[in-house]
């Protein structure tokens, strides 16, 4: 299968996934108890006429299949509706926040990936003392909850040493502590997966051959072993980046950052259903695209996969 055909097929599949996510979100809306019209009108006891008017405006008085059709039709045009609470278009509301979340997730991921690569290349199959120390620290990093790490980092780097802002902010220095918190949670897993992959690759005959050609230790590791260790790593990073994009709630809350996670938490608490739907769709889209990127990366890293079908 050629790369172009593969891409078209994956994009079509993405559309199907989005449709599925939209349908689930719509069903969730229908099944949630309570009248959305009353949520929109707020805490003041509205008159039945007001409620009826809102219901009519939003087509809540039409049969469910018609509502579903209207909902999908609006989505197809890119209209996610308006927030009940903030009275703003959901698209604009989420868009602002999504950028902040994506930035955090990507810097966290990149930091973790870099650190894990250095650890794995330095300790896979050699330097037993350093390897043991690194593995011990990785285990601690994996088992420490993010909120505690975040609090510790804040205590020392922000409150005591004033190196970084305590909360909010938009410059790059505001990104350091939150992304470090995220990275610490990931680096342990990444380093272990990579080290294991590299150690398996270093036992292969092609590594012996590379050494027999006069390759130095570093070049053997970087040119040969690392690429084989990337395959399991890509699998696990696809999952973890997707999870970061849609759910860095804890870190965003601790560092008082804007972000999708916080928008989602607030929307659920106040039953702001269009916003919830929007976040669900955004997460579905993010996961679909990341999965596509992951499958594409497999094909780049391992040429043997290029010939096999989907």
């Amino acid at each position: 299968m050629t790369a172009a055909r593969w891409l078209v097929r994956r994009l079509l599949l993405t559309v199907v996934v989005m449709l599925g996510a939209a349908t689930v979100a719509f069903a969730g809306l229908q099944l949630t108890p309570g009248d959305p019209a009353r949520v929109i009108l707020g805490s003041t006891t509205p008159s039945p006429e007001q409620v009826e008017q809102v219901r009519h405006e939003l087509a809540f008085d039409r049969p469910v299949p018609v509502q579903y059709g209207l909902f999908i039709g609006r989505l197809a045009k890119g209209d996610l509706g308006r927030s009940y609470q903030l009275r703003e278009p959901v698209g604009a509301l989420i868009g602002d926040q999504a950028w902040s979340s994506a930035l955090l997730a990507l810097t966290g991921f990149a930091t973790a990936l870099t650190a894990a690569t250095v650890l794995a290349v330095a300790t896979a199959g050699r330097r037993p003392a350093l390897r043991r120390l690194s593995m011990g620290l990785e285990l601690i990093a994996i088992s420490t909850p993010g909120f505690w790490v975040g609090a510790l980092l804040l205590t020392f780097f922000a409150f005591r040493w004033h190196l970084f802002p305590v909360a909010g902010g938009s410059g790059p220095e505001a990104l350091v502590l939150p992304s470090a918190t995220l990275a610490l949670g990931l680096v342990g897993v990444y380093a272990q997966v990579m080290r294991e992959g590299m150690e398996r690759a270093l036992d292969e005959p092609f590594v012996l051959t590379a050494r027999a050609r006069g390759g130095g230790e570093t070049s053997v590791r970087l040119r040969h072993a690392l690429r084989h260790a990337l395959i399991p790593l890509i699998t696990i990073s696809g999952w973890s980046v997707g999870a970061l994009l849609s759910g860095a709630v804890v870190v965003e809350t601790i560092f008082s950052r804007q972000g999708i996670g916080r928008v989602m938490a607030a929307a659920i608490a106040s039953r702001d259903l269009p916003v919830v739907t929007g976040v669900i769709l955004l997460s579905a889209l993010a996961f679909s695209l990341i999965n596509m990127a992951v499958d594409g990366l497999y094909r780049i890293v391992d040429p043997r996969l290029r010939e096999s079908a989907l």
Binding site: R211, A212, H224, V301, D302, P303
Partner: peptide, 24 residues
């Protein structure tokens, strides 16, 4: 040793499928 390997003394292993790096 690294200077000698491949330059003065070369080695061929059994089973070229696993002795050549499959991703290169």
């Amino acid at each position: 040793w690294r200077e000698l390997r491949g330059r003065r003394i070369g080695m061929v292993l059994q089973d070229a499928l696993s002795s050549l790096d499959p991703v290169r």
